[in-house]
Amino acid sequence: MTPEGWQALTAITSLVVAGITTALGAVGAAFGESRIGVAAMDAMARQPDESASITRNLFVSLAMVESTAIFCLVIGLILLFANPFVSG
């Protein structure tokens, strides 16, 4: 295969993999965050007095889980816009 062909193949693969990475990262984080949200709502419904501290811990847990999705998004953006294997 010619060098141009390899470049095109690398670019196409990067596009596909960027999409898959971002999508799977979003799905995983969405499932995890839904479980956190369910548990927090349940706890707040049972103990409304504790809702301040529950909310604080809720945000921390959401941020922790969300960071995996952000990692996937960053990898996807690197593949799209700052790919080291695609020249030009």
């Binding site: 941020a63 922790m64 969300e66 960071s67 952000i70 990692f71 998004l73 960053v74 953006l77």
Partner: peptide
């Protein structure tokens, strides 16, 4: 690492 990447990823992606 997660602390820095979380902040960077959120702000960069929002701006982008």
């Amino acid at each position: 690492f997660a602390l820095s990447m979380r902040l960077f990823g959120n702000m960069m992606s929002g701006h982008l």
